[in-house]
Lab assay of single mutants.
Amino acid sequence: TEELDSELELPAGWEKIEDPVYGIYYVDHINRKTQYENPVLEAKRKKQLE
């Protein structure tokens, strides 16, 4: 659920942004990119696909 997503600790260099226009998204300051999917959940999903 969304509530559990926010409890996950983000990897180093990541920041969660709550924007009133664009909603919640994540900033990867190391690689200078943004995405809507939580990077922790993304990594778990990719691992399940292997």
Rank of each mutant, 00 (worst) to 15 (best):
H29K: 09
T34Q: 09
I17R: 13
K33C: 12
L10I: 10
E9G: 13
G23W: 01
K16S: 03
W14Q: 01
I24T: 14
E2G: 11
S6T: 15
L49Q: 15
V27H: 06
I24Y: 02
A12I: 14
K47A: 11
L8E: 08
A43R: 11
A12R: 14
D19M: 00
V27R: 12
R45G: 11
P39W: 00
V40K: 12
G23F: 00
K47C: 07
V40Y: 07
E18C: 10
K33L: 13
G13P: 04
P20M: 06
G13F: 04
V21L: 14
L4K: 14
N38D: 09
L4G: 11
E9T: 11
G23M: 00
S6L: 12
P11S: 04
P11R: 03
E37G: 08
K16V: 06
D19R: 00
L49N: 08
P11Q: 04
K44P: 06
E7G: 14
E2W: 15
V27G: 05
R45T: 14
V27Y: 04
A12V: 14
K16M: 08
N31L: 05
E9R: 09
A43D: 14
Y36S: 11
Y22N: 08
L41I: 05
D5N: 15
S6R: 15
Y25F: 10
T1K: 03
K47E: 07
L10D: 01
W14A: 01
L8R: 11
E42Y: 05
Y22I: 09
R45K: 14
Y25A: 06
K47I: 02
L4T: 13
E37W: 03
T1W: 05
W14Y: 01
S6V: 15
L4Y: 03
I30T: 07
E2V: 13
Y25V: 11
I30Q: 08
N31Y: 01
D5I: 14
I30K: 11
R45Q: 13
R45L: 06
Y25C: 07
I24N: 01
V27D: 15
L10E: 01
G13A: 03
V27A: 11
E37L: 08
I30E: 11
D19T: 04
G13S: 05
N31K: 07
E2R: 11
T34S: 11
T1E: 15
Q48D: 14
P11N: 01
L49S: 13
L4P: 07
R45M: 09
V27C: 12
D28A: 00
N31A: 09
S6D: 10
P39E: 03
D5Q: 10
